[in-house]
Simulated assay, not measured.
Amino acid sequence: MVDIFTRNDLVYLMRHGPTDWSKLDEPNVAPTDCANQRIMSPEGRANMVDMGALLASNDIVPARIVVSEWCRNQQTLESLLQGMAEVDPSIPAAMPVETTPDLNLLLSLQGSPDVTPLRDRISAWQGDPERDGPLLIVSHYTNIEELTQFRVFEGEILVLDPKRDNLVLGYLRLKSAAPDVGHFADALASPLLDEERAFDMVERYYSALNARDDDLFEGLLGERWFVHGESPSRTSRDVESYLMEIDTYVAGIPDIQFAIDSLHFADDVVTVIGTLTGTHTGEVFGYPATGRQVEFSAIAVHRLEGGSIVESWQMPDRLTLLEQVR
């Protein structure tokens, strides 16, 4: 697998970064008319900065970059170079960049009539005699699908081998990459995708919980989210009060962490089975520190609605914990 990322004779065929689908391209819009076409979202720009930094930090720097004239592609280029500059400030100035209509949106105004120029460019690549690294091409969904028969997310990179008739060897994409409404309407309606999104949301919830950082809960919890189970006397209705509730554990087990053992999805509910571990270095349930390692299980249930967690039930095995600290 390492060979995929280090060979100079490979081609990285990339779809532009994530865009704002609330604004579509105007009919017959010119490739450089940014005011009347779909452009990258702020989140998409940030993601492509991350992608550039990730590539450069792993010593994956293109020998040259070829990019479509369209604004979203040019923005992708800018963001990638910005990210690479965070790792090595000399990269952008030294990077050979070519903008060509051959990569423009297939069959659009001022676009390529077919993928022949794209195919020929990839097939002819044998590496740059003066620079190490693959060729990076930043094009569009339609062009890439027509050439490779692969459906790619915004910001995704296919790794092609020109020596093997442009065979797709693999792909690179950020964890944040996701189907878009323009080209993946069928996938967005899939229950499998609902499950994947639900699991991702719950995993991020427990990452935030382990970090005990209420800022990390932003975007995960609904405005009226509340949790059951941590207190027999009252329900915690926001992140701050919930974190205060679990101080019972944190005060006596400062390094306590929740590990997910399994996730189960049905309708709009995710059931989590997990294990809590830590060191008993402070008072828990009135029992003084023992210095022992503790481990106990927990079951949690989260109800999802409108893309966020709106209600949670937490059921830790307090009896097992009590037996270990007394």
Results as ranks from 00 to 15, higher is better:
A289Q: 12
G286T: 07
G291R: 12
W313R: 04
L160I: 13
A124V: 05
S108F: 12
G307N: 12
L10K: 03
V269D: 03
T320F: 01
S68A: 12
M84V: 04
A208L: 05
H228M: 13
D102N: 13
S312Q: 06
R38D: 01
F217G: 00
E26S: 11
E26Y: 08
S241E: 15
Y249T: 03
I91C: 08
E78K: 13
D238Y: 04
A46P: 04
I253N: 00
S308K: 15
Q149A: 11
D114S: 15
G111W: 05
I122Q: 01
Y171P: 00
F258V: 12
H228S: 04
L106H: 04
G44N: 02
V270P: 00
I4K: 10
A94W: 01
T248L: 07
Y205N: 05
K163D: 09
T320I: 04
I157L: 08
D88N: 15
E154T: 15
H183A: 12
E196W: 10
E154S: 15
E311M: 06
G133T: 09
V67D: 04
A53Y: 03
D213V: 11
M51R: 01
I137T: 02
V272I: 14
I137G: 00
D9K: 09
I260A: 09
R45H: 12
V159K: 09
D161M: 07
T248R: 09
Q293E: 15
E78N: 13
P96C: 10
H280W: 02
F153P: 01
